[in-house]
Simulated scan of single mutants.
Amino acid sequence: MAISKQYLKTKPVCKVTFTVPAEDAKKVAVVGDFNNWKATEASALKKLKNGSFKGTLALPKENSYEFKYIIDGDYVNEPEADRYQWNDYAGAENAVLEV
């Protein structure tokens, strides 16, 4: 799994690209504070020929966001997250993205 960040000079946003290697998965989405934890078309990652899933979101800069991946219905943390934060509602740690 991987995250790459591209800060735009002309806008106060960061383009964040999420890459998830999940060859056997049928669906992968990224959910978090930025989309009310809802898997939508915009948060769905597209399957590539190499079997990984990839997608890019434009997020406002100077914020932090809790997030997870949903891989075929299972919530999974990003191992390369900027940090982790306990979430009482989920009863687990969430990955945190700092942009």
Results as ranks from 00 to 15, higher is better:
10 T>E: 12
72 D>P: 04
93 E>M: 10
68 K>F: 05
31 V>R: 11
96 V>D: 04
57 L>Y: 03
27 K>Y: 10
77 N>Q: 09
64 S>I: 07
78 E>K: 02
17 T>V: 06
69 Y>M: 04
54 K>M: 13
82 D>M: 03
98 E>R: 04
94 N>K: 03
33 D>C: 06
61 K>H: 13
14 C>K: 02
85 Q>M: 05
46 K>C: 07
37 W>A: 08
30 V>A: 05
34 F>Q: 06
90 A>P: 00
96 V>H: 02
48 L>R: 15
78 E>T: 01
20 V>P: 01
14 C>E: 12
83 R>C: 08
20 V>I: 10
32 G>K: 03
80 E>I: 03
99 V>D: 01
22 A>M: 07
80 E>C: 02
50 N>A: 09
1 M>R: 02
31 V>E: 12
56 T>P: 00
71 I>D: 06
35 N>L: 11
92 A>P: 00
97 L>E: 03
4 S>C: 00
1 M>D: 06
71 I>V: 15
78 E>P: 01
60 P>I: 13
11 K>N: 09
8 L>N: 14
1 M>W: 11
70 I>P: 01
7 Y>A: 12
52 S>N: 10
86 W>V: 09
37 W>R: 07
86 W>D: 07
92 A>Y: 08
49 K>E: 12
22 A>F: 03
61 K>P: 00
41 E>D: 15
39 A>S: 08
94 N>Q: 12
78 E>S: 04
60 P>G: 05
89 Y>W: 13
90 A>Y: 14
10 T>G: 04
99 V>Y: 10
76 V>D: 04
32 G>F: 06
11 K>A: 14
2 A>R: 13
53 F>Y: 15
71 I>N: 05
38 K>A: 15
62 E>D: 12
82 D>G: 06
46 K>G: 01
70 I>E: 07
5 K>V: 05
30 V>Y: 11
3 I>F: 10
46 K>N: 13
72 D>S: 06
82 D>R: 02
49 K>F: 15
96 V>K: 01
24 D>C: 00
42 A>C: 08
72 D>H: 10
4 S>V: 09
8 L>Y: 15
94 N>P: 00
20 V>T: 05
27 K>F: 14
64 S>Q: 12
28 V>C: 00
64 S>T: 12
37 W>Q: 08
24 D>T: 13
55 G>Q: 00
63 N>C: 12
30 V>N: 03
3 I>N: 04
24 D>Y: 07
69 Y>N: 02
60 P>A: 15
35 N>T: 09
73 G>L: 00
98 E>G: 05
83 R>A: 08
41 E>T: 15
25 A>M: 04
80 E>Y: 08
31 V>L: 13
62 E>Q: 01
21 P>D: 14
8 L>F: 15
